[in-house]
Each structure stands twice: as C-alpha cells, then as structure tokens.
Amino acid sequence: MPLLIQQVPPTQAPIDLLLLADPSEEKIRSYLHQSGCFVASLGAMVIGACLVRPLGPTSHEIMSIAVHPEHQKSGTGTLLLKWVIDFYRRSGAQQLEVGTGSFGYQLAFYQRQGFRVTGIERNFFIDNYNKPIIEDGIRLYDMLRLVLQLTKTECGPE
C-alpha cells in the first residue's frame, strides 16, 4: 500500500499523534488553527503528521512533526518532511525554520535535509513546559533554532 501525503484542514489534525512531538496539547491547540496541516496515510490509517505555521509572507516554522511509533525508522518522517519542504518551496516560501532539542535524533533528522543551526533558546524546555522532557535519558533544557533556505544561496548547494 503506497504512502499518501496530503494537506488537510487543521480540524482534521491527529492530536494524539502530534503529542508524540509536542507533549503539550495546550501548546498544539494554540498554534493548530493558524498552521498548515499535513498527514501521511497508509490506507485509512494516519501514520504521520506535520504542522507548519506562517511567520511572514515568505517564512514558515515547522511546529511539530510526528510518526506513529510502529512506523518510525521506516523513512515515513523523511518522506513527510521532504514533501512539506517541496510544498513550501513551490508556494514561493524562502525559508523554513524549526526549533528542536539540543541533541538526539531530531537534530540529525533536520540536518540531513539541509537545516542549519542559527541560534539557541536557553532554558526553552524549562520555561515553556510544566513537566521535564526527557530524551534518551537526558533532560532537555535548550532549544536549537534551525533554518533551511528554500531559495538558492551563495553558500547552498547548486
């Protein structure tokens, strides 16, 4: 069965799945209705989701991307991210931004697609979440900000 990736209305966002990427339902709901919502499905089962909110006319931020645990490490997340990148590139966006933990597989996930670290938000996960967020047995404190330029730049690949 082929993977289908498509944009859906925010009202159809799979909140339970998105909670894998952002453990605060309150935070997800705060940016959900201003975001583009994309899902990856196998038949009738949604196995991946991504929310992207506009920052301005040519810049957007990936707020959350998640893949169902049974389908992680299958390439679904990479296909979904590439689809979203292509969607925004075709729409005329100039850059995509994302914030992620300062270590772990998520950082490498974005860097493999060309995102580059542009800053750090110290104590982000302490200041913005009521409960500690633990990744690979280590508590997250700081958020790294990454940017992917969607238009050709002097430093980017040809």
Rank of each mutant, 00 (worst) to 15 (best):
M1G: 14
L4G: 03
V8H: 01
P9L: 14
P10M: 04
T11I: 09
D16Q: 10
D16Y: 04
L19S: 04
A21G: 10
A21S: 06
D22C: 05
P23A: 01
E25M: 08
E26F: 00
E26N: 06
I28Y: 13
R29G: 05
S30N: 05
S30T: 06
S30G: 07
Q34E: 14
F38W: 01
L42H: 02
A44N: 12
A44F: 10
M45K: 15
I47R: 03
A49H: 05
L51T: 11
T58K: 10
T58E: 06
H60T: 09
H60P: 06
I62Y: 05
S64V: 07
H68L: 08
S74I: 03
T76H: 07
G77M: 04
I85N: 11
D86G: 14
R89A: 10
R90N: 14
R90P: 04
G92N: 10
E97F: 11
V98P: 02
V98Y: 08
S102H: 00
F109K: 08
Q111R: 01
G114K: 11
F115N: 11
V117A: 07
E121G: 03
K131D: 14
I133E: 02
I133C: 06
D136F: 09
I138C: 11
I138R: 15
R139G: 12
R139T: 13
L140D: 07
R145L: 15
L148D: 01
K152Y: 13
K152M: 14
T153W: 05
C155K: 07
G156P: 07
G156H: 10
P157F: 11
P157H: 14
P157N: 10
E158A: 10
